[in-house]
């Protein structure tokens, strides 16, 4: 039986009838064609599917789609504005924090949620908060550096 879902994704109001046993990640990828959100394990163990829901970073792969009811969802596709990259995206590219890129959208969304809440994280806080994201390519060093750089840039932008 399908149920009515009303939600907002990347600022766009969406109303659909969905199978409530569907997971949110499948709704985003298969119904809305927002394939930037990746599936690495579908068990909540790799972070590739991370999106931001009502300001919090969550794993869309183990989330029932109906949890999105009346929620504000931000996916990787909603981060760039008119072709201008968000500073986090920019620093990930410049800093060599991206290799195969499969973990990247999840990492960037996790970083966004982290920096929204804590604009000046320490290295240790970055590591703790982002440890639910597995990257098998980078050894995490350049990711950590990119997150700290992006934090600095966002603080500067805020001051301006």
């Amino acid at each position: 039986m399908k149920e009515r879902l009303v939600t907002t994704v990347n600022g766009r109001r969406i109303e659909r009838y969905v199978d409530p046993s569907m997971r949110l990640v499948d709704f985003l990828r298969d119904e809305l064609l927002l394939t930037g959100t990746k599936i690495g394990c579908k068990q909540g163990e790799c972070g590739a599917c991370t999106i931001i829901m009502n300001g919090t970073a969550v794993l869309s792969c183990i989330m029932p789609v109906m949890k999105a009811m009346d929620a504000e969802i931000l996916t990787i596709e909603g981060l760039e504005k008119d072709g201008t990259l968000h500073p986090i995206q920019d620093e990930f590219i410049k800093g060599g924090a991206i290799q195969c890129g499969f973990c990247t959208p999840g990492f960037i969304m996790g970083t966004k949620a982290l920096l929204d809440e804590n604009p000046s994280p320490t290295s240790e806080e970055v590591r703790e908060e982002l440890s639910g994201h597995i990257c098998r390519c980078t050894g995490y060093k350049k990711i950590e550096e990119a997150v700290l750089k992006a934090a600095e840039r966002l603080r500067e932008e805020k001051d301006d």
Partner: peptide
């Protein structure tokens, strides 16, 4: 030179396609 990787935009924005994204 440290040229930023050329597929960076594709990967950082979620636009880039992987096999699992092909329909």
């Amino acid at each position: 030179k440290n040229i930023p990787r050329l597929d960076g935009y594709d990967k950082a924005t979620g636009r880039g396609l992987y096999t699992t994204d092909v329909n």
